[in-house]
Design a protein around this nucleic acid. Structure first.
Ligand SMILES: [Mn+2]
Ligand SMILES: [Mn+2]
Ligand SMILES: [Zn+2]
Ligand SMILES: [Zn+2]
Lengths: 143, 143
DNA sequence: TATTTTTTGAGAATCATTTTCATTTTTATC
DNA sequence: GATAAAAATGAAAATGATTCTCAAAAAATA
């Protein structure tokens, strides 16, 4: 992580700060989907002086660098996660908020066809499906 | 439109107001992707006393009723459109904002497979692809 | 180490959307 | 159609996520 951060910062003429090292590390170790506030809370545990503005600034920066991705999972704020080389999508339970990740060659195929058909140069695919997970499905249908 | 509105309002015990009739009609006639402000502007041309709060309230209501759909097309506010029986998705040019609509049996197939695999009851699929449209593609690559 | 450049923290500002509440409109009842 | 009860509206304030401002601190460069 630190090596990667250094590389990317150098590349774009940014400084490597303690805040950046900490934040990227926390996102990396979280594995899941973090929102800005949760990241801020965790960061403050180790750098009590860090500011929420710094969290937002650097989330934006990491995203520009391609290190993380931003998702809207149904709430009115964003969640962030380390961007892995293989793209994935999200299936969210609208009742309990559970998030399942998935990928599908069908989506990749759809992208390729669309690229040809519309002659766009497509660089981003965001797919979110919503529904009820097995548990919530039951609770809703005791009919 | 008015018949539909009446039906849905009755069904859920809501009143049929002039504001609702006007707003739904404007969305219907717009065909494209309207945001709350644009809808408010157009509504005011015919009911100068209408409030932005009423616009938001009723967009939310129409959405709950399943009459319209809400999309995030890349800006930090929502766009709305009449919900047609056949689902469609969006391809957005990140340079000029142009929006192309599409649907694909591949996506439907992916949904079915996922439904089985994860045992979710899926009722919503939102797919947004981003890229550069043919025109913007050229401008960016004069290499 | 000295100088220049970038980033940070704190708080104010922004902007889309929601809430509040008194007033008006709609609905249901007669 | 008039009347009372229920729901919706307008205006303004509140909210909440995110961005901006600017003086002070840290990092990069010389
Ligand atoms: Mn994910
Ligand atoms: Mn559309
Ligand atoms: Zn669930
Ligand atoms: Zn374009």
């Amino acid at each position: 992580m630190k090596m990667i951060l250094k590389k990317y910062c150098k590349m774009s003429g940014r400084s490597v700060t303690n805040q950046r090292k900490l934040l990227l590390d926390l996102i990396y170790r979280a594995k899941g989907h973090l929102d800005a506030d949760e990241l801020f809370r965790r960061a403050k545990e180790q750098q009590q002086r860090i500011s929420l503005a710094t969290v937002y600034r650097n989330l934006k920066l990491f995203k520009e660098m391609g290190l993380i991705s931003e998702n809207r999972l149904g709430e009115n704020h964003s969640h962030y996660e380390i961007r892995s080389p293989v793209e994935h999508h999200h299936l969210v339970c609208r009742s309990c908020g559970r998030v399942e990740e998935f990928d599908s060659p069908l989506i990749d195929e759809a992208r390729l066809r669309l690229q040809q058909q519309k002659e766009f140069d497509i660089f981003s695919v965001q797919l979110k499906m919503e529904g009820y997970c097995p548990k919530c499905k039951q609770k809703r249908k005791p009919s």
